[in-house]
Design a protein around this nucleic acid. Structure first.
Lengths: 244, 244
DNA sequence: CAGTGGTCTAGACCACTTT
DNA sequence: AAGTGGTCTAGACCACTGA
């Protein structure tokens, strides 16, 4: 491991430790002490602590005062961690599928009441709706509707634009950085249209996300509604006592 | 604000800032700079940074290099943040309900195959199942099944034991500290028994959690399955780019 | 009691945003 | 150019765990 700046030392140390973790180097789950790591890597203990804190936040390790720092085996298995999902293609890939995207529709509409409220617009303003289907090989897994104010992406939205992940597109076309989603988890029963598009029998229960994506300044950028095939993709989550 | 140890300085600084946030003191959303806070509170900048980091992890504030630290208004509204939920009574209270718990059953059973796998037992070992219903005034909102190895709580489980939050009970009766849950989010359609207990018409879609609670040593303590009335309690979540 | 992580300080420099 | 958060150091002491 060669140490230089950018990415930061802390980030490099974090990556280094993570590598050793996934490499299975710490067989009993115990990670070397902070002092040992610091002197081995030639950095201060503070830097090592910073790196370990970030790994702890991700759930990769657990620290116990007086005892040591340990690998969190159970969390490493999870491939679809709800908090960490940003690209459905990545998620499908992590599940061993060969993902594909199909753009079903790109339409301009007038913002409905509820949508206007979500996006801080006034009802009737023009918005763009992108309807996409994510597939593993041939079977549909996720159906998404992204709704963006036409003011954010002035040009017409092409098919290839629509096919790129929404946060990339917002960055490229709108120059806006998608920072976080506020998501609502809603149970639904798939009927008619939705059942047909996801290729399931009518009446199949499914999870639906209704979420709003914000930029760094807490301004809403996009409203998204998604539907998932529970038999092909099931979400997991770590809930910790501290609430992080 | 008087500063003394225990809780730690950092924790006190964090609490202090949080108070001022919820008190609406930072009207434009801007929090004083780290240097200003440090000298005003008579602590080092490191301590202030530590406190702010924790607030950032909770989603309460956002930091932007070169610009400042800002209150995250949107997250403060959320009353049922999925990651932070540990007691359904607290959640119901936060929604303005008057919560109540009703213990429907406490039974001893032999562990089924799937449960044994979840709890690292062998099939057939004795387990205790606690069935509880959480109500707001008179309407049922949450139905939970907690399954614990009988070896963890050797004594018989009384009605009042069962009524206490599961993590408190495990602490008191079993001397085990519940550290985190690994949860699976499953869509279901409420039928028969479940529909009756939650007082909804058959065929109502609902969210269900299937989760396993672990202690600090990554040992499974309890398996829980829960069902929610979507019309009375809907879960929300912040999904950030970094993945924490 | 030795070793671990937790807290805290004071100070330096850097990267970035804003004016 | 001034001010902000981001990184990093070296060192001290404390709280806790485990042998």
């Amino acid at each position: 491991m060669t140490i230089n700046r950018s990415p930061s030392l802390t980030e490099q140390v974090k990556a280094h430790i993570k590598e050793r973790i996934v490499g299975g180097e710490f067989t009993e789950g115990r990670i070397p002490s902070e002092t040992v790591l610091a002197s081995a890597l030639g950095v201060s203990r503070t830097t090592v602590r910073d790196a370990l804190s970030r790994l702890e936040n991700e759930g990769a390790v657990v620290r116990r005062q007086g005892a040591g720092t340990f690998v969190n085996e159970s969390i490493l298995q999870i491939r679809s961690r709800l908090e960490a999902i940003w690209s459905y293609e990545d998620v499908l890939q992590a599940h061993g599928y060969t993902p594909a995207v199909r753009v079903l529709a790109v339409e301009e509409e007038a913002a409905a009441e509820w949508l206007a409220a979500d996006l801080f617009l006034t009802a009737g303003e023009p918005i763009v709706v992108i309807e996409k289907l994510f597939l593993e090989d041939r079977r549909p897994v996720v159906l998404t509707y992204n709704r963006i104010s036409a003011g954010i992406v002035p040009g017409p939205v092409g098919e290839t634009d629509a096919a790129t992940p929404i946060y990339e597109y917002l960055e490229a076309a709108g120059g806006r950085h998608l920072s976080y989603y506020l998501s609502e988890i809603v149970p639904v029963v798939l009927q008619d249209d939705l059942a047909a598009k996801l290729d399931v029998v009518e009446g199949t229960p499914a999870i639906s996300f209704r979420e709003v994506g914000f930029d760094d300044d807490n301004r809403p950028l996009v409203q998204a509604t998604s539907y998932f095939r529970d038999d092909l993709l099931r979400f997991r989550l770590m809930r910790r006592k501290d609430g992080s």
